[in-house]
Simulated assay, not measured.
Amino acid sequence: MPIRTNRGRAAVYRKLWGWPMRSPRHLIISACVALIFITAAGIVIPKLTGKADRAAAESTRSNVRPTPVTRLSTPGAAPAPTAAPTSLPTRLTSPPPPPSSAPAAPQALDTATRWAHAWVDHPEGTSVEQWLNRLRPHTTEEYLAVMAKVDPANVPATKVTGPPVAKLSFEKSVEAEVPTDGGVLRITVIRTDQGWRVANYERGD
């Protein structure tokens, strides 16, 4: 007969909850039932959830299709090996060899002598332009522009006192010393397309 009142339901619930406490035997039986229920739940629930996860994974794998890889190769030919990166050797640029010495060219020494004679030729009243015109045939154009800044009145020498002496001699340049009454001139003569020309000078003692 169904229980129709709340009071009756409460009485039934009290009997159920109080049954394990009536005796030690009831308590042990209740504990064993609870343990069996918990163990069964621990086994059944993971299996159920594991099946659901595997089903979802299988569904995902079935929907994902692998992308085909196209490989172009010649029939019967072995696959080409992958070329390893190569490092180019560092190119070492050796310095140019020093110029080899050579006997002094007579034309170079002659140019040094002629230039020295023009350099000491500056009588009183000589203008810079007149002095440069005497030096021009024996001087490079670049060095003639440097000589234009020199006042011939400041040149201490008035005459050449001896022959030129080659101190350094190469195939395309000669350094010679020319003695004057105002000291020694150290003259550098180089070979150009126009012949041997003076490219520099220094005054010595």
Rank of each mutant, 00 (worst) to 15 (best):
V174N: 04
P137Y: 06
A148S: 10
E202I: 09
P89W: 10
V150I: 09
T60N: 06
T74M: 11
P66T: 04
T139H: 01
P156D: 13
L27C: 05
T113I: 04
T111L: 06
I28Y: 08
N63E: 06
L92T: 11
T93S: 09
K172Q: 15
A83C: 02
A56H: 07
R203F: 10
M21K: 08
R25C: 06
H138K: 11
R4F: 10
L35K: 04
Y13W: 07
A157R: 14
P179E: 07
W17C: 14
A104E: 00
P20F: 00
E177V: 07
R203N: 14
P137R: 07
S100I: 04
A56E: 09
K149Y: 09
T82F: 11
A104G: 07
V146I: 12
R14N: 11
P103V: 08
P89M: 10
P81S: 14
T158N: 04
H117A: 12
A105E: 03
P164T: 02
T126F: 06
A104Q: 01
V189T: 14
L185W: 11
K149Q: 11
A102N: 11
N6M: 14
T139S: 09
R203Q: 13
K15P: 13
T67G: 01
A153M: 12
V165P: 00
M1V: 15
T60E: 04
I28C: 02
A77Y: 05
K172L: 03
A145F: 00
S23K: 03
I28A: 11
N133F: 00
R134V: 00
E58Q: 08
A40C: 13
D151L: 07
L27A: 11
N6A: 05
P164I: 09
G18S: 08
I190S: 10
E202A: 13
P20L: 01
N200A: 04
P123L: 02
V146Y: 14
V128E: 06
L48N: 10
L132G: 05
Y13A: 03
I36W: 13
T126S: 10
R203V: 13
P96D: 14
A157E: 01
A104T: 08
P123V: 01
V69P: 03
A112Q: 01
R203S: 11
T70H: 12
K167Q: 08
P179F: 11
D121V: 05
T93N: 07
I45E: 12
W115T: 00
E141G: 05
S100A: 02
E177A: 13
Q130T: 06
L27Q: 10
P137E: 12
I36M: 06
V44S: 15
G162C: 08
A52H: 05
E141C: 04
K15T: 14
C32M: 08
M1F: 15
